[in-house]
Simulated scan of single mutants.
Amino acid sequence: MDGFKRRSELKKTSILQAALNLFMKYGIKKVSVAEIAKEADVSQVTIYNYFGSKDKLVDEVIIFYMEDVWREYERIINSDIDFTEKITQFIFNKKTSASSIHEEVYNYIMQEFTSGENSYIEDFYTNKALPEMIKLFNQAKEKGQIDRNISNEAILVYIQMFREYLQKKEVYEHILPLTEDLTMLFFYGIIGGRVEKK
Results as ranks from 00 to 15, higher is better:
Ser79Asp: 00
Glu85Asp: 04
Met24Pro: 04
Met66Val: 06
Asn127Val: 05
Val45Ser: 13
Lys141Ile: 00
Lys94Ser: 12
Tyr120Gln: 06
Ser79Glu: 02
Phe137His: 03
Met133Ala: 04
Lys30Tyr: 09
Thr46Glu: 05
Thr84Cys: 03
Asn138Val: 04
Thr114Gln: 13
Ser79His: 00
Arg71His: 09
Glu85Cys: 00
Ser79Cys: 00
Arg75Pro: 08
Lys29Asn: 15
Asn107Ile: 03
Ser79Met: 00
Lys25Ile: 03
Ser115Arg: 01
Ile62Asp: 03
Asp41Ile: 08
Gly52Glu: 08
Glu132Val: 00
Ser43Tyr: 05
Met66Ile: 07
Asp80Phe: 02
Gly27Leu: 04
Asn118Tyr: 15
Leu130Cys: 09
Gln89Phe: 07
Asp59His: 13
Leu136Gly: 11
Tyr108Glu: 11
Ser97Glu: 04
Gln111Val: 06
Asp82Glu: 10
Lys38Met: 06
Phe90Leu: 10
Ser43Pro: 03
Leu57Met: 10
Glu117Arg: 12
Glu60Val: 10
Lys30Cys: 07
Glu103Arg: 13
Asp68Trp: 10
Tyr50Val: 00
Asn78Gly: 01
Tyr50Met: 05
Glu104Pro: 04
Gly27Arg: 00
Gln111Trp: 08
Val61Ile: 03
Phe90Arg: 04
Ala140Trp: 01
Gly116Asp: 01
Phe92Pro: 05
Tyr125Ser: 11
Leu57Lys: 07
Ser119Ala: 13
Phe23His: 11
Tyr73Cys: 03
Tyr48Trp: 10
Lys25His: 09
Ile87His: 01
Thr126Asp: 15
Ala129Asn: 04
Gln111Ala: 14
Trp70Leu: 10
Glu85Ala: 02
Thr114Glu: 13
Gly27Met: 06
Phe64Ile: 01
Thr96Ala: 04
Val58Tyr: 14
Asp123Ser: 12
Lys29Ile: 13
Ser97Trp: 00
Glu117Thr: 11
Val69Tyr: 07
Ile63Trp: 07
Tyr65Thr: 02
Tyr125Arg: 08
Lys128Val: 15
Ile76Arg: 06
Asn78Leu: 08
Ser32Glu: 11
Ser115Val: 01
Ala129Phe: 10
Gln89Met: 05
Leu136Pro: 14
Met133Trp: 00
Asn78Glu: 07
Gln111Glu: 14
Lys94Gly: 06
Asp68Met: 06
Thr96Phe: 05
Tyr125Val: 03
Ala40Pro: 03
Phe23Ala: 05
Ile77Glu: 07
Phe83Tyr: 02
Lys141Thr: 06
Ala34Met: 07
